[in-house]
Design a protein around this nucleic acid. Structure first.
Lengths: 66, 66
DNA sequence: CCTTTAAGTAAAGTGTGTTTGACATATAGT
DNA sequence: ACTATATGTCAAACACACTTTACTTAAAGG
C-alpha cells in the first residue's frame, strides 16, 4: 500500500510528530507507514480518514504487489 | 468496528467459506471478523471493498467504543 | 561551529491479525 | 436416525502493528 500522508502533512505544514499526536500513535509509527514499512490497522486508517476528511481510498491505495 | 459482511454475503447467497476463498483468507478469519472478534488488516479491507464494489466506509463503520 | 528541529532507523517488547487443525452445534434433506 | 453443510469456537503458532528508548543524519539559523 502506498499513501498520501506526507503530502497531506505538507499541505498543513505538520511534522510527523504532529500527525502522530493527532491520531494518537508514536512518531515512529507515522514514519514507518510513510516509508511503507507496514500498513496501518483499519482503525488507524479510519482515524486518518476522519482527520483529513477524505475517504480511506483517497489516502491509501494499492501499489504493485497486491 | 462493525461491518456488513454477513448481509453482503446473504445478498449473494455466499457461505463464510465462499467469501474466505474469494478474499484468500481462512474461514475462521471471516467468522471472527463478522463476529467482531477483530478488525481486518487494511489490505484485507481493500479486498472486501473491491470484491463488493463498495468503499471501505460503506462496508465497515465505527461502533461505540472508538 | 554549535544548537535545534525534523526525519530515519534499530532493538526489544506487547498485542492483534491470521493460520491450521480440531471439535461442537444447528439446520435441512433423506 | 443419519448425513451433509454452515456456523461457532478454541488452542497453538506465526506474522505484523505499534510502543519505548535510543542513536544517527540532515537542514537551517544563530
Amino acid at each position: 500500500m502506498r499513501n498520501r500522508l506526507k503530502v497531506l502533512r505538507a499541505e498543513r505544514d505538520w511534522t510527523q510528530a504532529d500527525l502522530a499526536t493527532a491520531v494518537d500513535v508514536s512518531r515512529q509509527t507515522i514514519n514507518a507507514i510513510e516509508k511503507g514499512k507496514f500498513d496501518p490497522s483499519l482503525p488507524l486508517a479510519f482515524k486518518f480518514s476522519r482527520l483529513f476528511d477524505q475517504t480511506i481510498e483517497q489516502i491509501f491505495f494499492a501499489d504493485d504487489d497486491e
